Each structure stands twice: as C-alpha cells, then as structure tokens.
Amino acid sequence: MVTRREWLLASGAVAAALALPARSAFAQPARTVKVAIGQKTIAPNLVNLLIGEGLGYNAAEGFKAQFMTVGGVSNAQVAIDRGDSDISTGVPSFALPILAKGEWGKAIHFYQYTYPYKWDVAVKPESTLTSYEELKGKNIGVPDFAETAFPVTKNVLRSLGLDPDRDVKWTAVGTGVAAGVALQRGAVDALAYYDTGFGQIEGAGIPFKMLPLPKNVPMVGGQFLMALRERIAKDRDLMVGYGRSVAKASVFLAASPRAGARAFLKMYPEAAPRGSSEEDAIKSVLLATARRIKLYDPPYAGAKIGSINPEEFRIEAQMNDMKISSFDAFLTNELIDEINSFDREEIKRQALAYA
C-alpha cells in the first residue's frame, strides 16, 4: 500500500511535471485553473476533461484550464495536498488505503468523470487461455504499476479466489502500442489494460482477443475529480464550472464521437499517430475512445452525470479488507445539481453541427 508519507516523498515528480496549456481559439479569461492529471502524457482517454477548453465551455464559465501531466495517480494527489493544483484526477485504488489508515488529507472527490467498468484482459489470438481463472501461474502485463489497470485487475482476480500477489506475475510493459507489442511478441502471457489503451493497440493493427469478463464484475475503478474542501467552499463557482465543462464535453462526445475527436486533435495535433493523414488521425482517436464514451453517463437508474455512488468505494474497500466506517470526508455530491444545470439538447446540437 502507498502511504501518505510516500506520496509526499513523490512530490518532487509533481514539481518537475510537464505543464501542458490547452490551446483555444477563444479569448482567454483572466483566471487559470490548474488541473493535475495522473498520467505521463496527454492521450485520448482524457478527452472529456480536455475539449471543454477548445469548445469554449471553460471560457463560458470564466476560466482557462492548464493541464499538467504529473506521472502517476499518486502524484496527482500530492499536487492537491501541496496546493500545486486546483483540481486533480483521482482513483480509489490509491486513495482508499490512505483513508483506511486514517491519514486522508483535506481533498474530496466531487465529480466522477468515467464510470466502471473499463478494463479487460487480452491474450494473443492463438492463446489457449479462455478465462480469468486460467491466468493462475501466468505473466500479466500492465502499462505501469502506477496506472489503474494494475490494482483494478488485482481486485478482479481477488474476487475470483486468486491471490494476485502470489498466483500471477506482473510485468510493466509500457503504454499504448508498446503494450500491444509486448503481448504480440510473447513477453507476457496476457495484457491488462483499459478501453482506450486497447483502442490504440487495435488502431496499430496488432491482433488480440479479450478474455470474457467474469460474471458480476465488481463495480470498481471509477475515475474522479477532486479538490480541497476549503477550495470548494471558497471557489464553488469555479469547481462547478469545471465540472459543468466536463459534463458538457461528455454529452458532446456521446452525441458525435467524430466531432469530439476533431476537437481533441485541434487542441493536441501531436497526439495523432506520426505521419497520419487528418482522416487517419481522427480514426485513431475514434478507435481509442469508442468504448470509453459509453462510460460517461452513470450506470445507475436516475443518477445525474458526474454523480458519485459511494457503494463503489464500499465494494472496493471490502474486497481489500479495509475497515472504513464512513466515506463522508471522501466524497460529495453537493455540486452535482449545479453542474447539471445546462441544456443537454443544445450541446447535442452543437456536436452535430461542429465543423
């Protein structure tokens, strides 16, 4: 488990993080909101967090976003704790152990930007493996040990009665196409990755097949936005504004994935495969995001976009034998009604008319 002290020791990585200011054709508002993202590079899996800048949704709320890729998810949490960011991405697999130890700081999750379940395990097309249970004794590749596929897949194996620390071997194989190449060359027996990562591998023409998801896969592994509680109290409109921008971007993407891909590439043309045409670049983003876009709306009847179901945290804590009596200091839905105060149909019309 990662301790709070270890997170603070990792703060040097935050200080050295590469800040990537998003580009926009709109006049820039006076305020800048720093958003720390717990991965090493800008990629299509972040699309609903990013394109609100290029579409003018951030400007409409009175701010400009500055996105900082800080490495791992633990570093994104450090950025919040130290005040290096205004908002950070967060995942329960790294945060819940801290909460269980009673060492949780002053950050609180206020918006869920991707819902479970987005991970799979893939094998080579000719592999004889047919189930997660058959992974016992095998070498499973993950992009990085600081990336969410690692702890989430461990939780799934644990739910099947396997000991993920003893029954399998784990190997970090890199992200994107590099992960697919590791599987293709037999460096690992299987690859645990998330939806947009597999989309990148598919776009590179690397063949694979997914193992069937176990029945009743646990609803864990959501991804969240968090901020300091005192910051939410002080700058509530700002936090609501960014949440609303992400919600609008999510609706925009669902209405027209192609328009969302074009908006993303206008902001980050360097994210396109090297040497690709505009059409091929758009296709690469569409392949990467096809599965993810389906996870922007909550899978719970009557729930509003961005709302957080604490049951996801309870399930993950229980799976890992964590004793947590209350999640009141860990999450809030108090901003959700305000975040959802926009015309979804108008956003859909914008997406369909996007040039």
Score class of each variant (00 low, 15 high):
residue 3 T to L: 14
residue 8 L to P: 01
residue 24 S to E: 09
residue 35 V to N: 02
residue 38 G to Q: 06
residue 41 T to A: 14
residue 45 N to I: 03
residue 46 L to T: 13
residue 48 N to E: 12
residue 48 N to G: 08
residue 54 G to S: 14
residue 56 G to W: 02
residue 59 A to S: 14
residue 63 F to R: 05
residue 64 K to Q: 14
residue 65 A to T: 15
residue 72 G to P: 01
residue 77 Q to D: 13
residue 79 A to W: 04
residue 81 D to N: 11
residue 81 D to W: 04
residue 91 V to L: 11
residue 94 F to D: 08
residue 100 A to I: 09
residue 105 G to K: 12
residue 113 Y to C: 03
residue 116 P to L: 04
residue 121 V to G: 01
residue 121 V to D: 01
residue 128 T to W: 00
residue 128 T to D: 15
residue 136 K to W: 00
residue 138 K to W: 04
residue 148 T to S: 15
residue 152 V to E: 08
residue 157 L to Q: 05
residue 174 G to K: 05
residue 184 Q to L: 10
residue 192 A to C: 05
residue 195 D to N: 14
residue 195 D to R: 01
residue 196 T to C: 09
residue 202 E to F: 02
residue 203 G to P: 00
residue 210 M to Q: 12
residue 215 K to I: 04
residue 215 K to P: 13
residue 218 P to I: 02
residue 221 G to P: 03
residue 226 M to W: 03
residue 226 M to P: 00
residue 231 R to V: 04
residue 232 I to V: 15
residue 238 L to W: 06
residue 245 S to H: 07
residue 253 L to V: 10
residue 269 P to Y: 11
residue 271 A to F: 00
residue 272 A to M: 08
residue 272 A to N: 10
residue 282 I to R: 01
residue 284 S to T: 08
residue 285 V to A: 00
residue 289 T to M: 12
residue 290 A to E: 15
residue 295 L to C: 05
residue 297 D to T: 07
residue 297 D to F: 08
residue 300 Y to D: 14
residue 301 A to G: 09
residue 302 G to Y: 10
residue 305 I to T: 13
residue 307 S to W: 05
residue 307 S to C: 03
residue 308 I to D: 04
residue 309 N to Q: 09
residue 310 P to N: 08
residue 314 R to Y: 05
residue 314 R to T: 12
residue 315 I to P: 02
residue 319 M to V: 06
residue 323 K to V: 14
residue 328 D to V: 00
residue 332 T to R: 02
residue 333 N to G: 10
residue 346 E to H: 06
residue 352 L to T: 08
